[in-house]
C-alpha cells in the first residue's frame, strides 16, 4: 500500500516558514505537548469518539465504519469540531500520498521557491516526507523541515539527503525545564543539533521566549557552545510567546516585554550569533 500521511492543511503561500515564497504543509500529530502550543488541535490523531459529529452545524461530519468522516465541500470552517474535541485532535484532515501533496505544491509553481513541511511534528512521517521531497527536488523546488527536534534525525539520514535544511526548535536547555514545558526529552534535541550542524543542515534555530517557563539565556549559551565556530553563520530567531490559540496553563499568560527581547538579542550577539531575528 502506498504511504500516506495525515495532512492538516496545505497553505499555498507563507511568509514565515523559511526564505522567500514557500508552500507550507502541516501534518497532523505531535510527539510532545508544549504548554504554549498555538495549534493544539494538531497534536493528536482523531480517536473516533464522535463527539464532534453531532455538534457540526454544517452536517459535514458523519460516522463511517467507526471513524469520523469529514466532508470537505460541506465544511464551513467554523472550527466547532476543534473547539469541542477533548483530545486535541481534528477531524478535518486528509490521508494523502506524497504524490497527491506534490501535485498541490507543484500547482503553485512558479510563484514559490520551495516547500516547508511542518506540523504537528512532521518527523513522525520521515519516510513520507522523503518521498515528497524527492518529487519536489526533481521539480526544482526547495525542501525544508520544520521540526521540534524530538525525533532522532540519525535514524533518517536518507531524508536529510533530499532536504535543504531544518528549522529546528530548541525550546529549552535544562532537561527538567524542557520536560515541564513540552513533556519531551531535550537530549534528543541536543543530539539533533550536533548532527545537523555537522552536516550543515540547520536553516534556522528558534527559541520561543515564555516568561517563567523556559531558560533562553541557558539555551542561547548551550547552542553557541554546541555549534562552536558555526555559531557565527547560524540564524537564530527569538520568538515572543503570544497567547493566540493557546489553551491550558498559558492561555492567559503575558508575552515577554520588548526590553526582555532586546536583552536576549544582545546576549545572542555576544554569544557569537551573526544573524539574530526578533519575532
Amino acid at each position: 500500500m502506498e504511504l500516506t500521511a495525515p495532512v492538516n492543511k496545505v497553505i499555498p503561500f507563507s511568509l514565515v516558514d523559511g526564505p522567500g515564497s514557500r508552500c507550507s504543509v502541516f501534518l497532523q500529530g505531535c510527539n510532545i505537548a508544549c504548554a504554549y502550543c498555538h495549534n493544539p488541535e494538531t497534536q493528536n490523531l482523531c480517536l473516533g469518539c464522535g463527539l464532534c459529529v453531532e455538534q457540526c452545524p454544517a452536517g459535514a461530519l458523519s460516522w463511517e465504519n467507526g471513524r469520523v468522516r469529514w466532508d470537505k465541500d460541506a465544511c464551513v470552517q467554523c472550527d466547532t469540531c476543534i473547539h469541542v474535541c477533548p483530545h486535541k485532535a481534528s477531524p478535518k484532515i486528509e490521508w494523502l500520498t506524497p504524490g497527491e501533496v506534490f501535485e498541490t505544491v507543484h500547482s503553485y509553481q512558479p510563484f514559490i521557491r520551495g516547500v516547508t513541511v511542518s506540523g504537528g511534528e512532521c518527523m513522525l512521517r520521515a519516510d513520507w516526507m522523503r518521498e515528497l521531497f524527492a518529487l519536489c527536488r526533481a521539480a526544482g523546488l526547495g525542501t525544508l523541515i520544520d521540526s521540534n527536534g524530538c525525533v532522532p534525525f540519525e535514524e533518517h539520514l536518507d531524508l536529510l539527503d533530499v532536504a535543504d535544511g531544518v528549522m529546528l526548535d530548541v525550546k529549552a536547555w535544562d532537561e527538567g525545564t524542557f520536560a515541564r514545558l513540552t513533556s519531551g526529552d531535550v537530549c534528543v534535541v541536543k543530539r539533533n543539533l550536533a548532527l545537523l550542524a555537522e552536516r550543515n543542515k540547520i536553516e534556522e534555530l528558534r527559541i520561543v521566549v515564555v516568561p517563567g517557563w523556559n531558560d533562553p539565556e541557558a539555551t542561547i549559551a548551550g547552542i553557541a557552545d554546541a555549534l562552536g565556530e558555526k555559531t557565527a553563520t547560524t540564524k537564530l530567531k527569538l520568538i515572543r510567546f503570544r497567547r493566540f490559540g493557546v489553551v491550558g496553563a498559558l492561555a492567559n499568560a503575558n508575552s515577554p516585554t520588548d526590553e526582555r527581547m532586546s536583552e536576549l538579542e544582545a546576549l545572542a550577539r555576544e554569544a557569537g550569533f551573526g544573524q539574530v531575528e526578533l519575532r
Binding site: V16, P19, G20, Q109, P110, F111, I112
Partner: peptide, 22 residues
C-alpha cells in the same frame, strides 16, 4: 500586502519572478 512581508522581501521577489515568467 501584509505589512510583515517587509521582513521577507524575498517572498515578494519570488512572486514577481513567478508572475513575470508567465
Amino acid at each position: 500586502v501584509e505589512p510583515t512581508a517587509a521582513q521577507n522581501v524575498d517572498a515578494l521577489l519570488d512572486v514577481i519572478k513567478g508572475a513575470f515568467a508567465i
